[in-house]
Design a protein around this nucleic acid. Structure first.
Lengths: 155, 155
DNA sequence: CTCGATGCAAATGCTTTGCAGAAAA
DNA sequence: TTTTCTGCAAAGCATTTGCATCGAG
């Protein structure tokens, strides 16, 4: 499934968020709607900066703090994943239901490929179980050199 | 291989460091020797703070910056791995030659189990190759609940 | 003597927080 | 009206850097 095929589920994500906010007595504001809309329609791994730029395109008065606070909220209700790829920046990714994947990252150009592998998942479960753990989640990142950079490097 | 069995290789690590520093024209100072000695003898995943406490036990005048700078040096020459486990803190681990492992972390008590699995490694190589990448390294972390915390939680 | 290393304090960069005013419910 | 939210600026933290001094080679 490619990221663009998720577009149709933005409403579903908004609905899940609405349910969570309702349960917690949180309020729906224009800024929050802007931030979550931009985020839910996004693809890939966005920094706060990335989001803020897009959000300000729609509403120039929105501040950093609001974006941070909104993404914290999305993390809490399981609609966003926070990722750290080595530089000191947090990046966020939409947590589409039923889907999750790991990352293959180019050490030179930072190109990111997403992948999924059931066999690895199965082995992870076994490993956790063998140590007496119940597995909740995992983080798998592969770092290498992509074919483009290898060709560029050999010139 | 358990961490304590690496004790005999501290000299080897110091030798590798010495070779690197020689090649780069870097100087061997008392502070650097103290920091690297503490670090090479260590087990587990130490923060800068952890290291500084131990180092100051031997030489109270050593400053933060020196520890940071020394660990940066160790990262550069491949003798230390830097890890991030979610909180904003960098932790460092000795990069023993020929050995590497992944981590299984309890979400409640932060207990860390280290493990190694050749089959996962093999699949990772395949995945990278199938996307045109040459794999250099990886990061695999499993997060779950350990048996102790499960028992405590069900009381 | 030279140039790298150190220690301190100041600076940096990302993220969080306090607070007064704005706006949902 | 009550309570949450927002925007701004200030505060927090981990980490890095500038600089005068120290010390290895």
């Amino acid at each position: 499934m490619t990221p663009s095929q998720h577009t149709a589920t933005v409403d579903g994500l908004q609905a899940r968020l609405a349910a969570y906010m309702d349960k917690k007595g949180l309020r729906s504001t224009a800024q929050r709607r802007t931030v979550t809309d931009v985020f839910f329609r996004s693809t890939g791994h966005l920094s706060i900066e990335d989001l803020l730029v897009q959000v300000r395109g729609l509403d120039p008065k929105v501040g950093y703090a609001t974006v941070y606070r909104t993404l914290k909220l999305l993390k809490e209700c399981g609609l966003a994943y926070e990722r750290h790829f080595g530089d000191g920046i947090s990046r966020y990714e939409v947590a589409h239901e039923d889907e999750h994947h790991d990352h293959l990252i180019c050490l030179e150009c930072s190109a990111i490929v997403e992948f999924e592998n059931d066999e690895i998942e199965r082995i992870q479960d076994q490993i956790a179980k063998s140590h007496g753990y119940v597995l909740k989640r995992h983080k798998l990142e592969l770092y290498g050199i992509c074919s483009t950079c290898r060709k560029a490097g050999s010139e």
